[in-house]
């Protein structure tokens, strides 16, 4: 029975000491503290420690007024500076300078990748080997008159001033 009372008190002691318990629970804890020695000890320990915390914690990190003044000055600078920045960036629709600088870097990377590709493509266009028209076929298909009317004289045929006959040395003679 005493164990139960002790556990009950232990759970509700923080709220009992700070006066946050509903009336019924408060009366019950008070009765247990009166009846049970362990509960009484727990209550005393809890109260002393709470007092110690309430005394020491509020003094932890108490700022000097000079410190707060410095923060206030920095705060005022911050409040004024972003307004100018936003006005400057409004045309870009960016929410901050960080986004703007990111987009600049991305644009630079895209340019750096695209420019060599485009230059390379143009160079390839200029230096590309065009497929050659087969010259023999061209000569054979060139005559617009009938073969019978003007038979081809291979020995006198020439391309670009050079006689065609050596090139056609191993070529069988056309059947006429």
């Amino acid at each position: 029975m005493f164990r139960f009372k002790y556990r009950y008190c232990k759970v509700l002691m923080a709220r009992y000491v700070s006066g946050d318990l509903p009336l019924a629970a408060r009366r019950r804890v008070a009765r247990y503290i009166d009846e049970c020695e362990d509960c009484y000890r727990e209550y005393m320990r809890h109260r002393e420690f709470t007092q110690e915390l309430e005394r020491n914690l509020p003094t932890l990190g108490r700022p000097a007024s000079a410190q707060l003044n410095q923060v206030w000055e920095r705060l005022q600078d911050d409040l004024q500076a972003p307004a100018q920045e936003r006005a400057w960036l409004r045309g870009y629709g960016a929410s901050g300078s960080l986004h703007f600088s990111y987009s600049l870097v991305l644009a630079a990377i895209a340019l750096a990748l695209l420019v060599p590709l485009m230059l390379g493509y143009q160079a390839a266009m200029f230096t590309a080997d065009l497929p050659r028209v087969p010259q023999y076929a061209a000569i054979v298909s060139t005559p617009n008159t009938s073969l019978a009317a003007s038979p081809l004289n291979i020995s006198t045929a020439a391309i670009g001033g050079e006689p065609l006959s050596p090139m056609l040395h191993n070529t069988p003679a056309p059947r006429l």
């Binding site: 932890l60 990190g61 700022p63 410190q67 707060l68 923060v71 911050d78």
Partner: peptide, 24 residues
Amino acid sequence: YAASLYRLCYSLLLNEQDAEDILQ
């Protein structure tokens, strides 16, 4: 509110510089 807010930040972070930054 600055003083109590600073105390709160300092008690949670236990570092002066961080507490000032968070306050700001």
